[in-house]
Design a protein around this nucleic acid. Structure first.
Length: 271
DNA sequence: CCCGATTCCTGTAGGC
DNA sequence: TGCCTACAGGAATCGG
């Protein structure tokens, strides 16, 4: 499930392979996604130069000589460069043939992702407004979380996954960061102290940074921009470990549904 | 405004 | 072996 570390891993893997290249041809095999890919974009994109690749929240922004490609990986998507002739897999929806011979492939079995061509400033796009601060920026602090949580009754895990408060944290890293901070995921967001939010903000930063170092988490089929899987799954403390011993205290990890999402925590280490 | 439920989709796993 | 169902989840959207 691509969260910030997987998207950042994709960005870093793609950067040396696609920046400076020109799009020579586009093959559209499937347009139905979270937001449809307009087939008319193929002609508009042909011949454009790739100036850079940035990330905002879980979105990739591929800056072109005219406009921007806005990519979201949904929950099963990946964007990678392959050598020409690499066998097609089911759900390889889009292909961008570059002037260095490589093909940039968008693959997304569940089609919760999207690829949109924007010709206005990306910051003005509705999908990018109302996003919270980047968790690895100085604007993200425990104080910020604490203030945003005032008066909120929803579970802190649900609060942490709301991209309006902080971006990039999804189901896996929310569980991991809450474990690191010793906070039960089902606690009401408005009833947690500033001190504890400071610990949580620190754990969010640490967890995401370590995951980026490991190339993200590959539970099923995530691969980065260069096609390599991630290794952070070996480091997971609680996610997916229901019934297994806590790595800190040995008691079994508990699974619970919070906000229609499965959550994992240690009842002994988290309060 | 806030919050919980619903919705989109397909691959995989478990039960019988 | 094969069929059926449940589950996985990012995030927009809707209803209360």
């Amino acid at each position: 499930m691509p969260e910030l570390p997987e998207v950042e891993t994709t960005r870093r893997g793609l950067q040396p392979l696609i920046v400076g290249r020109t799009i020579q041809k586009i093959v559209v095999r499937e347009t139905r996604m979270r937001w449809p890919f307009d087939p008319a974009w193929a002609a508009l994109l042909t011949g454009l130069h790739i100036k850079g690749i940035e990330r905002r929240a879980k979105y990739l922004l591929i800056e072109l000589s005219k406009g921007t490609l806005l990519v979201h990986l949904g929950m099963s998507g990946n964007l990678r460069c392959v050598e020409p002739g690499t066998p097609l897999k089911r759900h390889d929806h889009l292909e961008f043939e570059l002037d260095n011979g490589l093909n940039l492939r968008f693959h997304d079995p569940r089609r919760f992702g999207c690829v949109l061509y924007l010709t206005s400033p990306p910051a003005d796009h509705p999908l990018l407004t109302n996003l919270g601060p980047e968790p690895l920026s100085v604007g993200f602090t425990g104080q910020h979380l604490y203030e945003r949580a005032r008066g909120r009754k929803s579970a802190v895990k649900t609060f942490l996954m709301d991209q309006q408060h902080v971006v990039g944290v999804g189901n896996i890293y929310a569980s991991e960061a809450l474990f690191g901070a010793g906070i039960r995921p089902d606690r009401s967001a408005g009833r947690i102290s500033l001190i504890r939010y400071e610990a949580l903000a620190k754990q969010v930063r640490i967890t995401l940074a370590r995951a980026i170092e490991q190339g993200g988490t590959t539970l099923r089929d995530f691969v980065g921009g260069d096609g390599q899987p991630g290794y952070f799954q070996q480091t997971l403390q609680v996610y997916g470990r229901a019934g297994e011993p806590c790595r800190q205290c040995g008691n079994p990890i508990q699974q619970a549904t919070i906000g229609q999402r499965s959550s994992y925590f240690c009842p002994h280490c988290q309060h």
